[in-house]
Design a protein around this nucleic acid. Structure first.
Lengths: 218, 218
DNA sequence: GATAATTTTTAGATTTGTCTAAAATATTTA
DNA sequence: TAAATATTTTAGACAAATCTAAAAATTATC
């Protein structure tokens, strides 16, 4: 079993892992809001436990064991988010920090029963896929607005930023998971995205647009 | 805000407090499964934070502030136990350790919404009263079998021991919260208690009987 | 009321996770 | 490729919570 802190490092490394590249110490330090020296200490410890492969001055990547541990935590995080929103009626902008605490409750039996109780949800309130008990989950769309042609319709499937201020901003815009959008235009000047949402046309800044997970409507 | 460990000490001191007496270092050490020296360290720390009144070599008692903190934790513990049994269908013998973890989740808003969701339960699955948001709760019956006359009927209102093995023993005897019992006799020899439960007569050892919280049937 | 037994505290060490400052390595730039 | 810059690691310290062993205070016993 890992400590609360070790679990958070594993999760951070998981989220920073793209393709096959090693994750750098500084990147982890920023994600964890701590210092590079502290990260080095922890990387040594995680390597001792065979949770990561770590090379001095190069970086780290999760082993199979480490990835499984990270996915188990993410599964719990997302199931608790569903519970908080569906059952306790929290807003999608309020649940991230609470789920960060709840995800460390260790019982597998609890996770299994929570999953049962919630009816085996496939996605959390932010559209992120929930791994099943074996760690399998559906892939996330990597479609960008730049790949869409004006006039095409898309669906908002999820968001890749979970901060309250971002989610509240989407609420004010009237955007939610499942919303149907039609691309009007992308401005050359600042890459802002103009879309049609029902009767209204709205402008999404590049910063907003890049955190929207979208799929072409079939 | 208190640490996880500080919260557990406050809870231990609360449970060991009877009448006005000071709680001794050794008693806390046994309850916390730790050494007296560790307890002394922590008592100093809790006293610094005005959570307890502590006199060297004498013992400790909770201040108003400390008692409120302890009751808040107990409220969360008992609400989570209701959730685990009522919603997730755990047995009453399986929930203690899980609730020990969940009780440390700090959000007041979460506690309030959990209480709403559960319909403001007044007692947990072991019959213990659940404090409301202000810390008020119904008193626990202190009636002993020795105060009952043979032939009188009583109701099982709760249990004062939450170990799995004790609760599984009650399950095997067919006893549960709400069961109606009629006292047959108390043996002089070993203080064991013979009761009528429905069609059956059963014998409760002194050790079992003393952990049953009972009330006279009206 | 002195001594024995019990309880509690102190002193000093350990573990976990963190930090700062300085040294080492790697990368970029000229 | 040598110097400048950026990144990472080491060394040494600190805070929280714990421990063991020894000392101090309290309580019980004769």
């Amino acid at each position: 079993m890992q400590s609360y802190t070790e679990e958070n490092y594993l999760k951070a490394i998981y989220h920073l892992s793209t393709n096959e590249a090693l994750v750098q110490t500084n990147a982890i330090a920023e994600q964890m809001q701590t210092k590079a020296a502290s990260v080095t200490d922890m990387l040594k410890k995680l390597a001792d436990k065979s949770l990561i492969a770590y090379t001095r001055y190069q970086g780290a990547k999760l082993t199979e064991k480490g990835r499984n541990a990270a996915i188990a935590i993410i599964r719990k995080h997302r199931l608790w988010e569903v519970f908080l929103v569906e059952k306790l009626k929290f807003g999608w902008d309020e649940v991230h920090d609470l789920a960060e605490e709840l995800e460390h409750i260790s019982s597998d039996e609890l996770t299994k029963r929570l999953d049962d109780f919630l009816g085996y949800p496939s996605h959390d309130p932010h559209g992120d896929p929930i791994p099943d008990a074996s760690g399998n989950f559906s892939p996330i769309s990597a479609l960008r607005f730049q790949q869409i042609k004006p006039g095409e319709s898309i669906l908002l499937k999820g968001v890749s930023l979970h901060s309250s201020s971002f989610l509240q901003h989407l609420d004010r815009l009237g955007l939610k998971i499942g919303s149907e959008l039609r691309l009007v235009a992308i401005a050359d000047f600042d890459q802002s995205v103009e879309v049609q949402l029902g009767e209204r046309k709205i402008i999404l800044s590049e910063n907003v647009a890049k955190h929207l997970i979208i799929e072409k409507k079939l």
